[in-house]
Measured scan of single mutants.
Amino acid sequence: KLLSSIEQACDICRLKKLKCSKEKPKCAKCLKNNWECRYSPKTKRSPLTRAHLTEVESRLERLE
C-alpha cells in the first residue's frame, strides 16, 4: 500500500492505542462500548529543516 492511502484509526482508538477496525460511521470498538466515534483530519507533519537536523546532530555528539 502507498503511504498516502493508509487509513487512520478513529480518535479514541488512537488515543487509547487500540486496534481500530476503521469502519465508518462507527468502528467496532466504539460501537461495542457506545463511545462517540470521530475521525479527525490527518495532520500534516512539517518537513525537517536543516537547522533542526544540525541541532539534533550536535546534541547527539555531546551525549556520545
Rank of each mutant, 00 (worst) to 15 (best):
R14P: 06
I12G: 11
C20D: 08
R38T: 15
S58Y: 14
K44N: 12
E61D: 13
E64V: 12
C27Y: 04
K32Y: 09
K29F: 07
L15N: 11
R45M: 03
K24N: 15
K26P: 03
V56D: 08
R14L: 05
L53S: 01
K24H: 13
C27I: 03
Q8H: 11
R62K: 10
E55C: 13
L48W: 09
L31K: 14
C30Q: 01
K26S: 13
T54S: 11
E55K: 09
C20Y: 05
S4K: 05
Q8L: 12
E23R: 08
A9L: 02
L53M: 14
P25Q: 09
T49G: 00
T54F: 05
E57G: 00
K22H: 09
E36T: 14
R38A: 13
R14W: 00
R45C: 03
H52G: 01
K16T: 01
E64W: 06
L48R: 04
S46I: 02
L63M: 13
S40Q: 09
P47C: 05
A9M: 02
I6Y: 11
K17Q: 05
E55H: 10
L2S: 13
R38Y: 14
R38W: 13
P41R: 01
R45I: 02
L60D: 00
P25V: 02
L31F: 15
S5V: 09
K32Q: 13
K32I: 11
K19G: 15
E57M: 02
S40C: 02
K29R: 10
I12C: 11
L60I: 09
K44I: 15
N34A: 12
L48N: 00
C10D: 01
C10T: 03
R59Y: 01
S40F: 05
P47R: 07
C27T: 02
R38Q: 13
P25I: 03
K1C: 15
E64Y: 13
L3H: 10
C27L: 03
R38K: 10
E64S: 12
V56T: 07
K32L: 08
L31C: 13
K42D: 06
P47Q: 01
D11S: 04
L18W: 10
L48G: 07
P25E: 04
C27D: 09
L18F: 00
L63V: 03
L3P: 09
C30K: 02
S4G: 07
Q8P: 07
L60Y: 10
T49P: 00
E36Q: 10
Y39L: 06
K24L: 14
C20K: 06
L3A: 13
K17E: 00
K24E: 15
Q8F: 15
K22R: 10
C20V: 01
C20P: 00
S21R: 03
R59D: 00
C30E: 05
E55F: 12
C13W: 07
L15R: 06
K17L: 05
E61M: 13
W35T: 12
C13H: 02
K24I: 15
L63T: 01
A51W: 01
S21N: 05
A51G: 04
Y39D: 03
C30M: 07
L3N: 11
E36H: 13
C30W: 08
C13G: 03
R62S: 11
E57Q: 05
I12L: 10
W35Q: 13
K24W: 15
K29Q: 07
L18G: 15
K22I: 00
R62P: 09
A9K: 03
A28M: 14
E57A: 01
R38H: 11
L18S: 09
A28T: 14
L63N: 02
V56E: 03
C37N: 01
L18A: 11
K17C: 07
R62L: 14
T54M: 08
A28L: 13
D11T: 02
L53C: 10
N33H: 11
H52P: 00
A28V: 14
Y39W: 06
Y39C: 02
Q8R: 05
L3G: 12
A28I: 14
L31R: 15
K19P: 08
L60W: 01
C37W: 01
I6K: 08
E64N: 02
I6G: 09
H52I: 04
K29T: 09
H52L: 04
S58C: 15
I6M: 13
L31D: 15
K19F: 01
Q8T: 07
P41W: 06
L48D: 01
Q8G: 06
E55I: 08
L18R: 02
H52E: 08
T49Y: 07
I12H: 12
H52A: 00
K32D: 04
K1F: 15
